[in-house]
Computed example of a mutant assay.
Amino acid sequence: MVQYNLSSGDLAFAALADATRRSLLQQLGRADASITSLAHRFEMTLTGMKKHISVLEKAGLVETRKVGRVRTCSLGRRELKAEAEWIEAYRKLFEARFDALDRLIFEMQQEKDDGPAGEQ
């Protein structure tokens, strides 16, 4: 079996790919919460919530601490600067490609509106 060593960026993108995990980050951005309260709020099993939190924790996006029997979650300290830069580079690339496509379509429309060469 092939073993992959995922980078922190890969882990972050994998964690953020899920809508529930993105919603969890929004919720934790408002206030820390126990895994149990998050499970109730998101109407899922405790086991399911623990799996989501584990993925976010491995990516460094969430931190947990246990006090007695309660495990409380908070936003992690990991910044997404490298991921934001990667996205921005591709945004610029696609923007340039779409601008070029817009120019091509405009030129083709102009040629169509002007009619075949020599006719006027």
Rank of each mutant, 00 (worst) to 15 (best):
M108P: 01
G68A: 05
A39C: 07
G118P: 06
R22A: 01
I105V: 14
L28T: 01
V67D: 00
F94P: 14
A96P: 13
T47Q: 12
D32P: 15
K50L: 07
F106L: 04
E79P: 11
G68R: 15
K92R: 13
Y4D: 05
S7C: 05
E107S: 04
K112G: 03
A89K: 15
S34M: 06
A89W: 10
S54P: 12
H52V: 00
L38H: 02
D114T: 09
C73Q: 02
E88D: 13
Y90C: 04
E107T: 11
A14Y: 13
A33S: 14
D102F: 09
Q109Y: 03
T36E: 10
V55K: 01
A14H: 12
F98D: 02
R78F: 05
V2R: 15
D114C: 09
K50S: 12
M49A: 05
D113P: 06
V2P: 04
A84N: 14
L25K: 10
E57H: 12
F106E: 12
S74F: 07
Y4R: 14
R22Q: 04
R22N: 13
A17D: 14
E85P: 03
K51C: 04
F42E: 03
E119Y: 11
Y4L: 07
F13L: 14
G29E: 07
M108E: 08
T64A: 04
M1E: 09
Y4W: 10
A33K: 07
T64P: 05
S34Q: 00
V67S: 08
D99W: 01
T20L: 07
I87S: 08
E63W: 09
M108D: 00
D10E: 06
K58Y: 00
R97F: 06
R97D: 06
G115T: 08
Q3C: 04
S23E: 04
G68S: 12
Q120H: 15
R30C: 02
E79T: 15
E63Y: 13
Q3D: 10
V70H: 02
D114K: 14
A39W: 00
A15Y: 06
A19R: 14
S34G: 09
H52L: 00
S23F: 09
S74Q: 10
L46Q: 14
A33C: 08
G48P: 12
L38F: 00
A84G: 03
M108K: 07
Q27Y: 05
E57M: 02
T64E: 03
M1N: 14
T72F: 01
L61P: 14
S74C: 13
K66A: 08
K66Q: 13
